[in-house]
Amino acid sequence: MFRTRSRHRLLIAGALLIGAACPGAAWAHGDVTPQAVDTTGLPKLGDAWRAENPFRKNDAAVKIGTSAYNQNCARCHGLEAISGGIAPDLRKLDNECATLKDEKKKAACVKEIDEYFASTVRKGRTRNGAVYMPPFEGMMNQEAVWSIKAYLETRREKPL
């Protein structure tokens, strides 16, 4: 019993120390100011949002998406898309699709994940009134959003 309480107190003390040393880490879902993404060099996609990532395997988009991810997403989703537990690990976003053998089902799955990703980035996520992810609509154009997705596709845990 004593050891369990001592461990619990040590864990709390450690968390408090980390929070004091790096206050942003403890409250990573607090105020997040979106950073502008320079999408110069990418084709303009227009106002109508695409249902699928038009920048898949586009090297220029991956480069822009890497920078955009680091500026806007890494603080919650982790460096190189490796989550530290605060937010979902985005390397696993397409895992379910990767296990599908039927190519038509796999393509439909990837499209569905693309739509989910774009919707989540644009509208954010809330639960019981708490903001789990801020909305980026109006802050990032679709070129920026799809370039981030193109980068994340290079970080997949299970390649398609």
Results as ranks from 00 to 15, higher is better:
residue 129 G to P: 08
residue 25 A to T: 13
residue 32 V to T: 13
residue 45 L to K: 15
residue 151 Y to G: 05
residue 78 G to I: 13
residue 89 D to W: 00
residue 92 K to G: 10
residue 158 K to W: 10
residue 62 V to M: 02
residue 105 K to L: 12
residue 131 V to W: 03
residue 124 G to Y: 00
residue 60 A to N: 09
residue 25 A to G: 06
residue 18 I to M: 06
residue 23 P to V: 10
residue 20 A to R: 00
residue 29 H to I: 03
residue 18 I to T: 11
residue 68 A to T: 05
residue 71 Q to P: 04
residue 99 T to K: 13
residue 106 K to F: 07
residue 151 Y to N: 03
residue 91 R to F: 09
residue 58 N to M: 07
residue 32 V to K: 02
residue 147 S to L: 05
residue 124 G to H: 02
residue 33 T to E: 00
residue 71 Q to L: 11
residue 96 E to Q: 10
residue 33 T to M: 09
residue 132 Y to D: 04
residue 118 A to S: 11
residue 56 R to Q: 12
residue 12 I to F: 13
residue 139 M to Y: 14
residue 47 D to C: 03
residue 150 A to D: 14
residue 7 R to N: 07
residue 157 E to Y: 14
residue 152 L to C: 05
residue 43 P to K: 06
residue 127 R to M: 06
residue 86 I to V: 13
residue 65 G to E: 06
residue 29 H to L: 05
residue 62 V to I: 12
residue 55 F to D: 01
residue 146 W to C: 00
residue 110 V to G: 00
residue 2 F to Q: 15
residue 44 K to G: 07
residue 85 G to E: 01
residue 108 A to K: 00
residue 34 P to D: 08
residue 153 E to L: 06
residue 28 A to P: 09
residue 102 D to E: 06
residue 133 M to A: 04
residue 52 E to S: 09
residue 142 Q to I: 09
residue 48 A to D: 04
residue 119 S to L: 04
residue 145 V to W: 02
residue 138 G to M: 02
residue 15 A to E: 01
residue 132 Y to N: 11
residue 102 D to C: 11
residue 54 P to A: 08
residue 147 S to T: 12
residue 106 K to H: 08
residue 49 W to A: 02
residue 147 S to Y: 05
residue 76 C to F: 02
residue 14 G to K: 03
residue 127 R to L: 06
residue 74 A to K: 00
residue 77 H to Q: 11
residue 108 A to I: 08
residue 128 N to T: 10
residue 109 C to W: 02
residue 38 D to M: 05
residue 96 E to F: 08
residue 20 A to I: 15
residue 151 Y to T: 12
residue 144 A to S: 14
residue 24 G to V: 04
residue 5 R to Y: 01
residue 63 K to P: 05
residue 31 D to W: 02
residue 114 D to V: 08
residue 89 D to R: 01
residue 91 R to A: 03
residue 35 Q to A: 14
residue 140 M to C: 03
residue 61 A to L: 06
residue 37 V to H: 01
residue 100 L to R: 03
residue 67 S to E: 03
residue 95 N to R: 04
residue 119 S to H: 08
residue 31 D to L: 12
residue 128 N to G: 13
residue 136 F to C: 01
residue 147 S to R: 07
residue 46 G to E: 07
residue 87 A to Q: 06
residue 4 T to L: 14
residue 154 T to K: 02
residue 16 L to E: 12
residue 24 G to M: 04
residue 14 G to L: 12
residue 156 R to S: 08
residue 41 G to A: 02
residue 70 N to L: 06
residue 123 K to Q: 13
residue 156 R to E: 14
residue 41 G to Q: 05
residue 85 G to H: 04
residue 51 A to M: 12
residue 122 R to M: 12
residue 36 A to K: 14
residue 150 A to Q: 10
residue 59 D to A: 13
residue 90 L to F: 04
residue 60 A to I: 05
residue 160 L to G: 11
residue 160 L to V: 08
residue 158 K to P: 01
residue 150 A to R: 04
residue 114 D to A: 06
residue 118 A to L: 09
residue 3 R to H: 12
residue 125 R to I: 15
residue 126 T to W: 15
residue 140 M to D: 06
residue 28 A to T: 15
residue 64 I to C: 07
residue 94 D to K: 09
